[in-house]
């Protein structure tokens, strides 16, 4: 079972958390200005990468707060977690563990 570092609570076991989909997909401020295609992209299309992936997690059975994480979809391990609103960390120098 993975250990996930909640940016507010620290290290906690995986069962306290719920996955929340890809991160950094902001809801458009004026959805009515979007074409059907643009809106469909926002609704449905995700990057689904092999490798590092920025995603939302919620510490549901803890502080209840959402946060963002970079996880390696190959190894399943988390590389970094950070608070919402913060930019995706630049991990190009680090090896994913």
């Amino acid at each position: 079972m993975l250990i996930i570092t909640c940016p507010w609570c620290g290290e906690r076991p995986e069962i306290e958390f719920v996955y929340g989909g890809e991160a950094h997909i902001a809801r458009p401020t004026d959805p009515s200005a979007l074409s059907d295609q643009e809106w469909a992209d926002f609704l449905y299309n995700r990057t689904n990468p092999k490798g590092t992936h920025a995603e939302r997690w919620r510490h549901t059975h803890g502080c209840g707060r959402f946060f963002n994480a970079v996880r390696d979809t190959v190894s399943d391990f988390f590389v970094a977690t950070y608070k919402p609103g913060e930019p995706r960390p630049d991990l190009s120098q680090d090896d994913a563990k």
């Binding site: 929340g20 902001a26 809801r27 939302r56 919620r58 209840g64 707060r65 959402f66 919402p84 609103g85």
Partner: peptide, 9 residues
């Protein structure tokens, strides 16, 4: 909670 925390903080 999702919308309140992440879209409209």
């Amino acid at each position: 909670e999702d919308y309140l925390q992440t879209e409209w903080p």
